[in-house]
Design a protein around this nucleic acid. Structure first.
Lengths: 209, 209
DNA sequence: AAGAAAGTTGACGGGCCGTCACAGGCGCGC
DNA sequence: GCGCGCCTGTGACGGCCCGTCAACTTTCTT
């Protein structure tokens, strides 16, 4: 018998139109949201602004996200999800604690600059600075903590509270990262050296108690 | 001629009713805002929520602030305005760079705990974390930078980029401060030791380049 | 005491929110 | 191919919040 239709031949992941459009819509919303948040700031942006940046109707937005806050978190999650494997790789390939810190910091700053240039951040100057803590974001935090905890367990890093150390490292990287982004062009290497050394010196001294 | 009225006798600061009520209203709004932000989070709060926490009418709010964002900034400014002199005093009375850092960090953490307990922060768990950069906030940043710059100039601190150092110090203090506040009760001394040592070790190592 | 100045009030038009009844297309079984 | 459900997009709707403003009240001035 003649095979009815070649369209349904695939056994596998070649999704149907339904799924494709779903993914496309979600992506369209996220992309528009990125642009809108960058232009108007988190506070100034409205769900309508975001949806107007797509071809979709207002109601459709709510098939994908509950609120603009959730979109924002999705964007944060997205960044974290892309960054975490990089961090993990740095941990696994590191020859020493120094190497790990240096590589991780460098990766973070490269990541920052990349995100920054892709128009994610130009946040209209005024307006509260906003940061989200999503599951994926927390996972990055935990990755950092586990990284340092492992180093401590192996004896290659001094003994300090891993939570404090992770928090301190993240804090330094974040704030210096901000300063770096204000430079033009950002000097990734200089910032990396400073931050990595700062962390290494800090952990050493903090441990000497 | 008879002096018209004894009411206008005062030469000085005893303000009239007008000014008094103005100050009282502004304060009432700020107080209500503190409570409302704590309960509903910055995002969840509305100008109406704030004004409902006072005896005032909705329109009156706009005689004092342009938006809830401006109230938030006023609160941030308030905190910064109270903290800066403390920081300055620490700088002026410090016997050494180590002493300065230690004292400043301790002051910051005490301040944090105090603010935290006065119900300022219990920010409903979910929701983006929000931080404001107001003139007064920036002034605190500059105070820190000037503090370390002075130390470097005097030769009591290693030579590093003051902007990086200030940013790094603030970052460490902030993040570790967050972790500390999650403890109950917060161990100010332990956190202070960790952060002060971390900064001192960090600056030393970062300078050795 | 009376007019001017300053401040407060709450109702109003406009916009955004989140929902929902409806419609249109996709997948699936025949 | 064909038609029937189901899934998803649609945009209008009631409700809430926003920021303004004309009218009113209180304070200050002369």
């Amino acid at each position: 018998m003649t095979v009815s239709a070649p369209e349904t031949v695939e056994i596998e992941a070649g999704e149907g139109r339904r799924e494709k459009s779903k993914a496309a819509n979600r992506q369209a919303i996220l992309t528009a949201a990125r642009r809108v948040f960058a232009q108007l700031g988190y506070d100034g942006a409205t769900v309508r602004d975001i949806i107007r940046g797509t071809e979709l109707a207002s109601g459709t937005f709510y098939n994908y996200f509950k609120s603009k806050e959730e979109v924002f978190e999705a964007l944060a999650d997205d960044g974290a999800r892309r960054f975490r494997p990089v961090l993990r790789a740095a941990r696994e390939s590191a020859a020493s604690f120094e190497d790990y810190i240096y590589t991780a910091v460098h990766a973070y700053f490269s990541f920052l600059v990349q995100e920054h240039q892709s128009g994610a951040h130009p946040l209209k100057d005024r307006g509260p600075h906003v940061r989200s803590s999503t599951p994926e974001t927390l996972a990055v935090y935990e990755e950092v903590r586990d990284g340092v905890a492992e180093a401590i367990a192996k004896g290659v890093a001094p003994k300090v509270d891993p939570d404090f150390l992770a928090a301190a490292s993240i804090g330094v990287a974040q704030e210096v990262g901000d300063v770096m982004l204000r430079q033009s062009p950002p000097n990734i290497d200089a910032a990396t050296r400073f931050v990595a050394d700062f962390i290494l010196g800090g952990v050493q001294k903090a441990a000497s108690k």
